[in-house]
């Protein structure tokens, strides 16, 4: 397992996800992916579901990957990586590995569309089968690659192009699916949440390093603030991610062996959700008088969930 010490040391890691990709300026995907692939010194085979990361990092004739990489379709990043991992096991058993001297780790990336929605079955299957891989969900809470449609990860009240705010609508009607807990319920040995950026960089890198060194299926749900569709300025990506943590809209925690929950970061003073919501155009309509009740509801739900996490941690179950 790669020791994630200080940032000065971590920054010596040669990048394995190259620039020159076509992700939007300020896209959190680039930050998260760099940290994850840099969190191990082992070789990597990466699969990626159709989505922003995939279409931006392998536009022929260019690839942004200094590691082996595979894209098949939208719903099968986990199935694809499980096949590659099975081949590694088979060749290893038959003494036919291409590089005997190298350890190979397997990582799949998917957006929330490719993970919460269309790819969930293949993720659930690959996890249940116990393949040795890390799945990282780049959760930008909607189908941002196709112009910002709602997914089952879109939070209540958010405007998307298929759950638009309107004369009689406050936007998305349903609560965000709690995928992290669902993945933990698979009994996966390691499941965690993370955000990109300089404040919580170590939390993410250490989680990736831990996940990659854990034998079996592991899962990281990384919030990926989307400058384009959440409607904030590109330079604010890190701040938005940090606010998600400070408001407890997206708490940082990990679950080991399907049950042992640890909260990794506790805001000193929990920031009201307004702070987070008001900085994003997708929630601007919630500040109209007729929608204010929803902000209160969101706050109540965030408080309830934060309480739940703390009680679970205390209970040690």
């Amino acid at each position: 397992m790669k020791n994630i010490g200080n940032l000065k040391e971590f920054a010596c890691t040669p990048d394995r996800f190259q620039g020159g990709h076509r992700l939007c300026p300020g896209c959190a995907h680039g930050m998260i992916v760099r940290e994850v692939v840099n969190a191990t010194d082992d070789d990597l085979v990466v699969s990626t579901a159709t989505g922003c990361l995939e279409v931006c990092s392998a536009i022929y004739p260019y690839t942004s990957w200094d590691v082996s990489w595979l894209h098949i379709g939208f719903e099968n990043a986990a199935a694809g990586i499980s096949g590659a991992e099975a081949m590694y096991k088979a060749l290893s058993r038959k003494n036919k590995l291409y590089n005997e001297d190298r350890n190979v780790k397997f990582v799949a990336f998917g957006g929330d569309g490719g993970t919460y929605d269309i790819g969930f079955q293949s993720l659930s299957g690959a996890t249940e089968r116990g393949h040795d891989f890390l799945y990282v969900c780049l959760d930008n809470e909607g189908y941002m690659n196709t112009g910002g449609q709602r997914s089952s990860s879109t939070p209540i009240g958010a405007h998307t192009t298929t759950s638009p705010r309107g004369r009689v609508s406050y936007g998305e009607k349903h609560r965000k699916k709690d995928l992290t807990m669902i993945m933990a319920a698979h009994g996966a040995p390691y499941v965690a949440t993370a955000v990109p950026g300089s404040k919580h960089w170590k939390d993410l890198a250490a989680k990736a390093a831990k996940a990659l060194s854990t034998v079996g299926p592991t899962f990281i749900n990384a919030l990926s603030p989307c400058t384009t569709e959440w409607k904030f300025k590109p330079e604010d990506t890190v701040e938005i991610g940090d606010l998600a943590v400070e408001t407890c809209m997206f708490p940082l925690y990990e679950i080991e062996d399907g049950h042992k929950l640890t909260i990794n970061y506790r805001p000193k003073n929990k920031v009201p959700v307004e702070e987070y919501l008001s900085k994003q155009g997708r929630f601007s309509h919630l500040f109209k008088p007729e929608n204010k009740w929803l902000i209160e509801e969101i706050q109540k739900e965030v408080d309830r969930y934060w309480e739940y996490l703390q009680r679970r941690e205390e209970a040690g179950v």
Binding site: D43, L44, V45, E54, V55, A58, I59, Y60, P61, Y62, T63, W65, D66, V67, S68, W69, L70, H71, I72, A84, M87, Y88, L91, L97, Y98, N99, R102, V104
Partner: peptide
């Protein structure tokens, strides 16, 4: 792909030029 010393990209997007 498992010849990780010589990484390969599978499944690139080829638009109208390719």
């Amino acid at each position: 792909m498992l010849d990780t010393k010589n990484p390969q990209t599978y499944g690139a997007q080829t638009e109208e030029e390719w």
